[in-house]
């Protein structure tokens, strides 16, 4: 039985394993190779000179990296605070309503991110839903709410809310009801239960949710472009610009590598710590 399990496991893992090796790992290695090339070449059969990294360091790209990471960190923190009560409700209080909520939130994931962000543009712009109606009712309008840093963070929060909400709810559901009741019985207040019991026991969910949000937000592009206008430039946009307008693949690859190393490092660290079997409910 066990021998057969081992063979079947390997066999069934082959299709997706091979596919990801060819279409995911190989392209990343290629990016790594390209990032060492001299400027503006379109093939990896050149002498590596690592000049792209020199450009990345000297040309002030650290600023865009800092903006990306800073804004995604802000979005992660805000989302944690916003999602905790809701996740708590879904895991412990709602019952049937939590299914409604789940379906309602999942459905938004199926709508192209562009369309939803565009909807926010229509909502928040001068002459948009908010400003337009306020002007119509009160007679005085304002300049619209777009094209600044807070609105980009807002957009990140909006788009990545489900990625925080669901892991968090999963994490809270993993807190045994008895552990909370026992702490309560032993004299803990609500706040003490949160700090001593729920927070540490829901940590796997908190970790996955925060990582997912942070990592996805760090590589985000559309929020800045559609909502932020020219307020700031993020790393993903620099990568895109280097590839398209700049026609400088090595520079784009080097910038991409910076993002990949940061994001990949965090992701691998986080994924390595989570016990997937337990989180997903293996018997």
């Amino acid at each position: 039985m066990q021998r057969r399990d081992r063979q079947l496991g390997l066999l069934y893992a082959l299709p997706i394993g091979v596919f990801l090796a060819v279409a995911f790992l190989a392209p990343i290695l290629l990016v790594a190779a390209f990032s060492t090339m001299p400027p503006k070449v379109f093939s990896i059969w050149n002498m590596p000179d690592f000049s792209a990294y020199y450009t990345v360091i000297t040309q002030g790209y650290w600023k865009t990296v800092a903006w990306s990471l800073g804004m995604s960190m802000a979005a992660t923190l805000i989302l944690f605070v916003v999602c905790w009560p809701l996740a708590y409700g879904m895991a412990k209080v709602f019952g049937r309503f939590s299914l409604v909520l789940t379906i309602g939130v999942v459905m938004t994931l199926f709508v192209s991110e562009n369309i939803r962000l565009f909807g926010w543009v229509l909502t928040l712009m001068k002459g948009g839903l908010v400003e337009g109606y306020i002007r119509a009712w009160t007679g005085t309008g304002f300049d619209g709410l777009l094209y600044n840093v807070p609105v980009i963070v807002f957009g990140l929060c909006y788009v990545y809310l489900p990625f925080m909400l669901f892991p968090l709810a999963q994490g809270i559901a993993m807190v045994p009801e008895d552990a909370r009741a026992a702490a309560f019985d032993l004299g803990a207040t609500r706040w003490q239960i949160f700090r001593e019991i729920e927070l540490p026991l829901a940590m796997p969910g908190i970790l996955v949710g925060s990582l997912l949000t942070f990592v996805l937000a760090a590589g985000a592009l559309a929020e800045t472009k559609l909502l932020g206008g020219q307020a700031v430039i993020v790393i993903a946009e620099e990568v895109e610009t280097a590839f398209t307008y700049g026609q400088n693949w090595p520079l784009g690859a080097a910038l991409a590598m910076v993002l990949i190393v940061i994001v990949g490092g965090i992701a691998i660290w986080g994924i390595g710590r989570a016990d997937l079997d337990r989180m997903m409910g293996r018997r």
Partner: peptide, 20 residues
Amino acid sequence: VPANKRPTCMVFQSLALFPH
């Protein structure tokens, strides 16, 4: 009086020991 304000306590069926 809620449980956390009562001078009594319980040993749970599951024991409810804090795993962390």
